[in-house]
């Protein structure tokens, strides 16, 4: 009887441990997914990472202000890509799928004969939506990660305001105001 209980306890412990390990591995993969894409660009195309001035400040401001429902943004720019060739890199989509964890779902892929490629992946983050975008052409590449609150974005599109300051003026109101002829006056 005691032996049975010991076996059951061991199995439960093993299940908990394996669950914890798989969760940690999934989180690790998610965190490293973008690094893996960056590594591919660096090794496959000898791409050089380009720093964007004031990006840190912009990211901080975005976290505070959350303009248009954008809660966070991360942009990495690469330049001087070599050996891009004329045809799209067939390995790129497979590499992205491999790099990003299962929570990321492919949404759009666009490939042009001149080598331009765009890949958009989406993932759910509670009530927010995360988007991962890779844009690559013969000389440059951009990896962007955005976390957006769709409700806030919708509200922004209806009434473009940042920190209470209207960006659209009263153009929208005017656009929806009926003209005299429409009201029949």
């Amino acid at each position: 009887m005691r032996r049975h209980r010991l076996v059951i306890h061991s199995l439960v412990l093993l299940a908990i441990l394996s669950l914890a390990c798989s969760t940690a591995a999934a989180q690790k993969k998610s965190g490293n997914g973008f690094d893996a894409i960056a590594r591919h660009l660096k090794t496959r195309y000898q791409a050089k990472k380009k720093s964007i001035p004031f990006l840190g400040l912009a990211k901080f401001a975005i976290r505070i202000v959350k303009p248009a429902g954008v809660k966070s943004i991360n942009v990495t720019l690469f330049e001087n890509l070599k050996d891009t060739g004329e045809l799209p890199d067939n390995e790129l989509s497979g590499m992205m799928r491999e790099a990003l964890s299962a929570e990321w779902q492919p949404l759009i892929s666009l490939r042009r004969r001149n080598g331009d490629q765009v890949y958009v992946y989406a993932a759910e983050a509670g009530k927010d939506v995360k988007l991962a975008v890779l844009v690559i052409n013969q000389t440059d590449a951009v990896i962007a990660r955005v976390k957006v609150d769709p409700n806030a974005l919708r509200k922004f599109l209806d009434d473009p305001k940042i920190m209470g300051i209207s960006l659209g003026g009263n153009r929208q109101q005017q656009a929806f105001q009926p003209t005299q002829s429409e009201t029949g006056k």
């Binding site: 779902q105 492919p106 949404l107 759009i108 892929s109 666009l110 490939r111 042009r112 004969r113 989406a122 759910e124 939506v129 769709p150």
Partner: peptide, 17 residues
């Protein structure tokens, strides 16, 4: 093709969109 576009919106992505 000059340009190839793929849009994949399965149930989950569709709900996100």
């Amino acid at each position: 093709a000059e340009q190839t576009l793929n849009i994949t919106m399965d149930g989950k992505v569709l709900q996100l969109a």
